[in-house]
Design a protein around this nucleic acid. Structure first.
Lengths: 213, 213
DNA sequence: CGAATTCTATAGCGGGCGCTAGAGAAGAGC
DNA sequence: GCTCTTCTCTAGCGCCCGCTATAGAATTCG
């Protein structure tokens, strides 16, 4: 309740430190990033870290939320602003191509890579749940497209959503392995060629790659 | 040269121990698998492990070779036995769907996952090189398909190969996240729908999903 | 048989891990 | 100014990491 805090104030910017922690975890993953790495990157001592963020696991959870808000919100924007499921998911892939190769930031997606091969219980599960929630969101949007008549009624929404998820995750791996933004753009374009034919005739976009119309 | 070896013979089966080590690395990755985990899984003491396999990194290298021969050789078989690039890569994806979800074995692909977020120098690079070599092999087969007239001459072989690699890696991630074999089969079928239209009229296979011909 | 050779088991090395106690520094309230 | 509160720094805890010295057990050669 009391907005005024007594005693010595914190000598560092909490959000700036969190952002540095995010970069470290994003780059090297949860376990490969040591507390010493974190304190060096954040420019603070270990006790300050523990006072401000709890323990390493709690800090990582907050980093994931920070990352989601700052670098992984393009999905919701695509759902909100694009009129069709196809347009929304095509835009999502293309924004991912940009986000996964942003200069000055680690490549790929933190949610996909930062908690693989993790011994600490719970860490791996948390990000796996997030990935599956993202694919469930794909499926929801696709089901809406089927209901609206955009997609054929016999479309397998779950399979199409999982396919898009696999492409997304594969793009992230490619970005980690050195693929450029334009590499990922053409990959995304190719991936959308697998999209089922429109049920109605008024799809807003043409197929980007060579279509056999 | 001398087949007879003097002194006390080894009391365990080296290949069986190597297979156990492979499972451990496959399941948990390089760094998350400790030497204590390995000795427990292999049923031998640490000095026996070091005498028979060198150090942890050398053992891992041998595990990767063992894995490649035992569980990742379906690519070469597909290239050798299928008449078209399309058939070869479709078969490769479907065999991957089976291999990534084999009962009694860890899910997904060791080459894709076992060395992510790795601090030990060289480990991560070695598997990245392997992944890129696999994609280069895709590209070689696709280029041959273009030369043979199977694929349109304006096909972007590098992009198509990278797309197939991303799908392959995304399938592996999906398998790790709990996808079943049939999930991956339909994913592979969807992925092949992005394959460019045949240049000649004699493609051996129909498109699995709804095609807008 | 004895001697030489090779493997195995116990125990422990140095080092880095996540994390924290204790003392001092720096601000806020009076 | 003084006091109280909170942060920060140094140092180091207990634990596990990859790895190995050493001693004893098992087998071959002469």
């Amino acid at each position: 309740m009391a907005t005024k805090q007594r005693g010595r104030p914190r000598s560092f910017d909490r959000d700036a430190a969190l952002e540095k922690a995010m970069r470290a975890f994003w780059e090297h993953g949860y376990e490969a990033t040591t507390v010493a790495d974190l304190t060096r990157a954040m420019g603070i001592g270990a006790p300050s870290l523990y006072a401000a963020f709890g323990d390493k696991k709690t800090l990582f959870d907050e980093v994931v939320r920070f990352y989601s808000a700052a670098h992984a919100s393009f999905g919701e924007r695509a759902y909100a602003e694009e009129p069709t499921a196809r347009a929304a998911l095509a835009r999502l892939l293309h924004e991912a191509a940009a986000a996964f190769t942003r200069p000055g930031l680690p490549h790929g997606c933190l949610v996909v890579h930062a908690a693989t091969n993790c011994t600490t219980p719970g860490i791996e599960d948390a990000l796996r749940d997030r990935r599956q929630a993202d694919i469930a969101a794909f499926e929801t949007r696709i089901r809406a497209g089927i209901a609206e008549g955009e997609l054929p009624p016999d479309t397998d929404a779950a399979a199409l959503a999982r396919y898009m998820g696999a492409v997304f995750q594969g793009m992230s791996q490619q970005a980690r392995d050195g693929a450029s933004r334009s590499d990922l753009e053409s990959l995304a374009g190719l991936a959308m060629a697998a999209w089922p034919a429109s049920a109605k005739a008024d799809t807003k976009r043409q197929q980007q790659t060579s279509s056999n119309a």
